[in-house]
Design a protein around this nucleic acid. Structure first.
Length: 231
DNA sequence: CCAGACGTTGTT
DNA sequence: GTCTGG
DNA sequence: CCAGACGTTGTT
DNA sequence: GTCTGG
């Protein structure tokens, strides 16, 4: 992974797939196709009070509670699944069960070597829902910053030609466990942090314009075609 | 003991 | 080359 | 993640 | 906050 994600523009589709209540539809979330770390990304968490799924915008790049500033000097937009439990920046969120779903239309990946950009997404127009962790940072003046990270694992066959890492993508059947809707041991949760099946994903080449995050219009995603040649 | 780090990806 | 901004 | 900046004096 | 290096 995984420096860029594509946010969905169709929020009725989010509601259908994530099953947000109508009253929690987060109408203020701006559609974005080309999203980078430090920007706000759409997540889904289990509301501690109501127990329901709630959409929350969070800064992409986890800021641990102990950080002196709400700005990290090192990369925290991805967390390696292999080292989550012990890594200083992520272990608190993990132990506290601060897990979230990161809701995207897919993501962009630049092939190692020639930096040719591709879009990658789940098949059948399903949202690409990634496993995330979040944390809360409180500033001296009381400001609160919610932030998150996307967990990575090794790549599946589909993505191997591009990259040796990919985000952990969760099938709908695993959302309840990840969100804490059903009691799940840490041991079982870790078993979810594996590559998504290649057969359930597809990728296609996209214009180099995607490399500049300020190019953020619908044409970046409308050019979706079949897998196409990788060379 | 205190000071300083605390991270990932990709490295033709 | 390395850091910052988006 | 990639793209773009990377600086100073002096100040319409 | 907590761990590591010196």
């Amino acid at each position: 992974m995984c420096g860029r994600a594509r946010l969905p523009q169709d929020y009725s589709e989010i509601k259908r797939q994530i099953k947000f209540g109508e009253h929690r539809a987060a109408p203020n979330l701006m559609p974005t196709w080309n999203l980078a770390p430090t920007q706000d990304i759409l997540t889904c968490v289990r509301d501690a009070v109501s127990g329901e799924r709630a959409p929350v915008k969070m800064r992409w790049g986890l800021i641990p509670g102990w950080a002196k500033e709400a700005k990290m000097k090192y990369a925290t937009f991805n967390a390696r699944s292999e080292t989550l439990e012990t890594t200083a920046s992520f272990r608190d969120a993990w132990k506290k069960g601060r897990r979230c779903l990161v809701i995207t239309d897919g993501f962009y990946e630049w092939r190692k070597g020639d930096k040719k950009p591709y879009a990658i997404a789940c098949v059948n127009d399903r949202l690409t829902v990634m496993a995330g962790l979040w944390d809360e940072w409180k500033g001296p003046t009381g400001e609160v910053v919610l932030s998150c990270t996307i967990i990575t694992t090794h790549s599946n066959e589909l993505m191997q030609p591009l990259h040796d890492r990919m985000p952990v993508i969760l099938d709908e059947k695993d959302w309840p466990a990840w969100l804490g809707e059903v009691e799940t041991s840490f041991e079982d949760l870790k078993k979810l942090l594996v590559p998504f099946p290649s057969e359930e994903m597809h990728l296609w080449p996209v214009d180099k314009r995607v490399g500049n995050v300020r190019n953020d219009d619908a044409s970046l995603v409308l050019e979706a075609t079949d897998i196409g040649p990788l060379l």
